[in-house]
Design a protein around this nucleic acid. Structure first.
Lengths: 299, 299
DNA sequence: ATTGTGTCCTTTATGGAAAAAAGACAGCGT
DNA sequence: ACGCTGTCTTTTTTCCATAAAGGACACAAT
């Protein structure tokens, strides 16, 4: 076994959707564009569809024979790339499972645990190291620095610097800048989410990321924009395994966002700074509160 | 050929220095500690020294037989790890050689060029991607974003935010904090360098990095501290192939550093901020000036 | 009792192979 | 003329093998 054809399987599943309401399929380059894969993969998909009796394929003629059923789809888990699998398993171990700071991380053991080769594990750890949670000892193991209170404080310190600056840059954007349109869109989604909060509160996480990325984008600074990756991954996994008071927490955050958005629209720098600071302070308090409580100093 | 024993060769060269003025060598664990390698490598070194007729080795007795000569050393280039070789060659291509933004980077070609396997090249690119100069298209090539004017502006913007905050944190350090001792040491080195500037001006680069890392360390924030890696690598390679006015440039920077250090010692936040801003503004101007000039807007 | 050595096992670093996926190009069809 | 397909080549992704390096443990020497 040398490589999983997850790109093929995922694109195949997505291609099944195109068969639903069409009698014939477009050209290969057109399909490649829509599915965001190469024409080589498109041709594999078409060949597979022929085998499955879904289409007849002769040169430019690609006639749909029958509608796809659930049985035609590849199972979800076979469409995950190795990198995604490694990320999930690793984050599970260090955020959910009890992993103490200082612990050694062993590439080989991790690879065996997950059932993949050492190469992708190693590459994952290298990529992941930029998040500041692990550190490499060359020619030796990795050290887990841990999702500690210190980590959260350092993360939020930088986040606050970056977001305040980005928010200030936002109000200086020209009125026809696409960011204003994006902002209006997320504002509407916030309002919609709030109206149906009892049922939809778990959807906030994704909206939160979208909103903050729009704000950070206004900085037009790749380092600031890229830093949001660190925040996003930490929040994503942390709150995924830490759902206490999720509804109340998200409701408050939505309201803060709405005030923050209104401030941005007002164009008043002072009002923006105030709304931004309030929200960031509250986000920090929530994050710190969800960590282990501060150790009591001895009396 | 599967792996270069560069760790061994580099440690062997360093170990030769220990033979100079000693009649016998210490224990294996002791040597391992001094050379910062494992005992396994120490034992390989000792075995090699026996073969070379440098020592007699019997259990705990490690008697020096003769002083090492230049011929005993491994040549410098054999002691560079593969990762170092890749980094140098790559930086040469993108900073010194004319590499236009938007260019594709090909792992395989790069590996063949340098004469190493694809695995370390790939790992280098992943590590390097955090510097914001290249970007990955999954399942496809890397894209060179280039050391452009925009890059320099974005880099210096973040640098200035981080350094101002770190400098402000520095003056709040307790008087017995080791950073004050480090600061005094680099101050002395600055003075010494300035006295012999005609001859020693190329040494400034290293001192510059040492100084700024001390300042950034005061932030006690891993993200701020790690960000200096980006600055360091850019400055290191950029000025290595761009030596115009190096002496004048370094002389000015030393003087700015001395004022900056004096401000830090004064403990006056306003004075610190002023000195820090002045130096950063001058560093930015120098960096931008050394890039291609701004394209003239059409009349 | 502590420190050092001999021995052996494990892990990391790196090259190599092969499947999956991307990409190039000539010739064909409209 | 332009876009599409057939075919072939190249590159990326991944697993695997092996040398280099690290690390563990029992026994030996001080």
């Amino acid at each position: 076994m040398s490589k999983q054809n997850t790109v093929f399987k995922d694109a195949y599943n997505r291609a099944l959707g195109l068969l639903e309401n069409e009698a014939r399929l477009p050209s290969e380059p057109d399909l490649a564009l829509r599915l965001k894969v190469s024409r080589t993969t498109v041709r594999s998909i078409l060949a597979q569809m022929v085998d499955a009796g879904l289409i007849r394929w002769d040169k430019r003629e690609k006639t749909v024979l029958r509608a796809p059923t659930l049985a035609d789809r590849f199972p979800e888990h076979e469409t995950d790339s190795v990198a995604e699998i490694i990320e999930r398993r690793f984050m599970q171990q260090i955020l959910a499972g009890g992993a103490e700071p200082g612990m050694q991380i062993n590439e080989l053991e991790l690879a065996r645990d997950i059932g993949v080769g050492t190469t992708p594990v190693r590459e994952f750890l290298i990529r992941f190291s930029r998040f500041g949670l692990i550190e490499k000892r060359p020619n030796s193991h990795w050290v887990l620095k841990g999702f500690t209170r210190d980590f959260a404080l350092e993360l939020t310190e930088v986040r606050e610097m970056f977001e305040l600056r980005s928010a200030a840059a936002f109000v200086r954007l020209p009125p026809d800048h696409p960011a204003w349109r994006d902002l209006a869109a997320v504002e509407a989604e916030h309002a919609a989410l709030l109206r149906d909060i009892d049922r939809r509160y778990p959807d906030f996480s994704e909206l939160d990321e979208r909103f903050h990325r729009i704000v950070h984008g206004a900085s037009r600074n790749r380092f600031i924009i890229d830093f949001y990756d660190v925040i996003a991954i930490v929040f994503h996994y942390h709150y995924q395994w830490n759902k206490t008071d999720a509804k109340a927490r998200n409701t408050i955050a939505i309201q803060e966002h709405l005030l923050y958005i209104a401030a941005l629209r007002s164009g008043d720098p002072l009002r923006v700074e105030d709304a931004c600071r309030r929200h960031l302070a509250s986000a920090r308090a929530t994050l710190l509160g969800s960590l282990a409580p501060v150790p009591e100093p001895a009396l």
